[in-house]
């Protein structure tokens, strides 16, 4: 495998919802012989595709389609129930507000912790620190515990860390929607720079116009399956048609 590649092979993910799940040992023992109420919920079924190194890949789909779960599987947060996902290269993920931040630690300590999780040395993070503080615009709050941060500050610091650790794969889950206009523009700019450096980027979003302007390939997920995958314009057109119940659609295209 080459650096920056992601392969998704026949991946399915099941979440178990246990109703009346025993929450204590006593309950578990008392009910050991009774049949448990287990609801199997297949979030993803038979997902199979490759993401080429250096490409910008978009995942679109309505709420509950499984796109965030797929991103979490790529980030190795969960293990697929069936199939296999492999990634090659240093991966940085922005999955939700304050992803990867420990609320009690200061911004600075969290930057070091994040670096350690990505496999970067303290010295490397030390060198990147000024740039991270600069990019996030957090200022003196960097030495305050992140639990007092506003949601915008969380996202800005998270994004600043993610892009400044020199990732080879970047996973982004729509979080950039939280920052203000100016910050969003800077993020776009930075993602483009990363792409120019050969970083593979996977973006999950509802925003078809944004996806079209950024992505090389888009996959449309629906009820845990890939409905369409390929060039952004035709896939997004079908997606929008579907969302509007087959009505006329106009896309802002970039030509």
């Amino acid at each position: 495998m080459t650096v920056g590649q992601i392969t998704v092979r026949d991946v399915s993910k099941r979440f178990r919802l246990e109703r009346n799940r025993p929450s204590s040992l006593k309950e578990a023992l008392l009910r050991a012989r009774r049949r448990r109420d287990v609801d199997d919920f297949w979030v993803l079924r038979g997902i199979d595709f490759d993401i080429e190194p250096g490409s910008f890949f978009g995942l679109i789909g309505h709420n509950g389609s499984g796109k965030s779960t797929l991103l979490r599987l790529m980030a190795n947060i969960h293990r697929p129930t069936m199939g296999e996902i492999s990634t090659e290269g240093r991966m940085s993920a922005l999955l939700e507000l304050g992803s990867g931040f420990h609320p009690d630690l200061t911004g600075r300590e969290n930057v070091y912790l994040n670096g350690a999780m990505l496999g970067l040395s303290r010295r490397h993070m030390h060198e990147a620190m000024d740039e991270i503080i600069e990019f996030s615009g957090i200022g003196e709050f960097i030495d305050e515990p992140v639990k007092i941060y506003s949601s915008g500050m969380y996202v800005r610091l998270g994004f600043a860390v993610s892009v400044n650790v020199d990732p080879e794969i970047l996973l982004v889950d729509e979080v950039i929607a939280v920052g203000d206009e100016e910050f969003q523009l800077r993020c776009m700019d930075h993602m483009n720079q990363l792409r120019d450096k050969g970083c593979t980027i996977v973006l999950v979003s509802h925003n078809a116009a944004l996806m079209e302007s950024l992505c090389d390939t888009v996959a449309w997920l629906d009820h845990g399956r890939v409905l369409e995958i390929g060039e952004p314009t035709p896939v997004l057109r079908k997606y929008l048609d579907h969302m509007r119940g087959g009505g006329d659609t106009t896309l802002t295209t970039r030509d």
Binding site: E96, S99, M117
Partner: peptide, 11 residues
């Protein structure tokens, strides 16, 4: 102590 963190990032 780290279980919440582990839900958001792999380590």
């Amino acid at each position: 102590g780290v279980s919440d963190l582990r839900k958001k990032i792999y380590f």
